[in-house]
C-alpha cells in the first residue's frame, strides 16, 4: 500500500472508534500534530492508536503511566490536543 492508503487506513482507525472522545482527539491529532512526528514517534502513535479506547484513555487523562519512553512523548502530545 502507498502512503495515501496507509494514511487513510490510519485515519479510519483513529476516527471510527468506540468512544466519541477518542474519535475527536485522535482525529485532531492526525490533522495537526501527526505530520510533525519523527519516524520513531509515528511508530509509537500507530501502536497507541491500535490500543482499545479504555486502555488508551487512562494514559491520556493521566490516570495510568506510559512505560515506553517514545510512547510517553506521543501521549504527552496527545494530552495537549485541544478539540475546537
Amino acid at each position: 500500500m502507498g502512503d495515501r492508503e496507509n494514511l487513510n487506513r490510519l485515519r479510519w482507525r483513529c476516527t471510527r472508534r468506540a468512544m466519541l472522545e477518542m474519535d475527536l482527539l485522535l482525529g485532531e491529532f492526525l490533522d495537526r500534530i501527526f505530520p510533525t512526528l519523527d519516524p520513531e514517534q509515528v511508530d509509537a502513535f500507530v501502536t497507541l492508536a491500535d490500543m482499545e479506547d479504555l486502555e488508551l484513555w487512562p494514559l491520556i487523562n493521566g490516570s495510568r503511566e506510559c512505560t515506553d519512553a517514545v510512547q510517553a512523548e506521543v501521549v504527552a502530545l496527545l494530552r495537549n490536543v485541544r478539540v475546537k
Binding site: R16, R17, A18, M19
Partner: peptide, 12 residues
Amino acid sequence: SKVFPTRSHTVA
C-alpha cells in the same frame, strides 16, 4: 463490521 468488534460503540 466497519471496525474491529471490540471497538463497537457498546463500549461506551
